[in-house]
Design a protein around this nucleic acid. Structure first.
Lengths: 154, 154
DNA sequence: CGCCGAAAGTGGCACATGCCACTAATTGAA
DNA sequence: TTCAATTAGTGGCATGTGCCACTTTCGGCG
């Protein structure tokens, strides 16, 4: 047996997922490189663009991302002028986010690059299977996962 | 066609994958928390344990991880005494890695915690489906993804 | 043997993420 | 109205990941 990462190097669902995410992330990043955006930034810009000046909390929830992590991730995009924030009219705690014209243009540019990677991926995997995989992943992401209450002492 | 976000908030395979990875990562991290290890560290320790004093390059390849990223990820584990490195006997460029007794003990401890999360996940998704999902993810990770050579100038 | 190019790691830099402690603004109740 | 609890974000800290520029070794050639 030639060791190495046998079929399914690990039974761990989490490890397998992360491993594939690294692989795919590099591929999409490579495709997006000419735009200067990373895959994560592209996804974030896209999410903002489809929302109606979403609040940070709403974005974080949609992306299943920690709110503070979102704040950090947003910084480079604000710095580069792709995104701007402003306080909600009725609740000053709420910070809303929108694309700047420059950000919209950058997103349009990135979408073209993204499409190449997306098509390539679907050509390899099959659009049908890719859709099914995304559906499964969305389903998993929506699970109400909870650790069994550790029966303390009982 | 109005759809767009919600159901499958994005058509992007990469974004969907990362999103689910964040979700699952938090779940496994929560389960592993008592051990002080993160899901990534657990996966790394495990990978090292199943290898024969693997070289860094071999680990990076198995995990589809950038070699320098692996180096960074390894640091906390070395610092905490779970892992140690040593030069290969025949090739001084190669750095090999192994668990320390403390690291093996920590891994054993973590495996118990991991099992809880793993079982819980499989109970929700179904062991069969989970296995199929991992197989699909492994398959995707193994794809020889390449951007179509941008036909520059005619 | 001496040189060149490939291979394996390292370090620095930037961004991705999460948790925790803290601040500010709101809401609900006495 | 006033104060406790809640909600939305921020900042700091630690780790995860990748890319790039280097440095050290190896291996192959002339």
């Amino acid at each position: 047996m030639t060791d190495l990462q046998q079929p399914g190097f690990s039974q761990c669902n989490n490890a397998t997922l992360r491993r594939t995410a690294r692989r795919l992330g590099r591929f999409y990043d490579e495709a997006l490189a000419p735009s200067g955006l990373k895959g994560t930034q592209f996804g974030l810009l896209f999410q903002i663009s489809v929302g109606s000046e979403p609040a940070m909390g709403a974005i974080a929830e949609a992306l299943i991302m920690d709110l503070s992590a979102l704040g950090h991730t947003l910084k480079p995009l604000v710095r580069d002028g792709y995104v701007e924030t402003f306080p909600d009219k009725d609740d000053r705690r709420v910070k809303r986010v929108r694309l700047t014209p420059s950000g919209q243009a950058k997103l349009d540019e990135a979408i073209k690059l993204w499409s190449v990677a997306q098509r390539q991926f679907e050509a390899m995997v099959g659009a049908e299977r890719a859709a099914k995989l995304r559906a499964t992943l969305d389903e998993v992401a929506a699970l109400n996962l909870e650790l069994p209450a550790a029966a303390s002492s009982g």
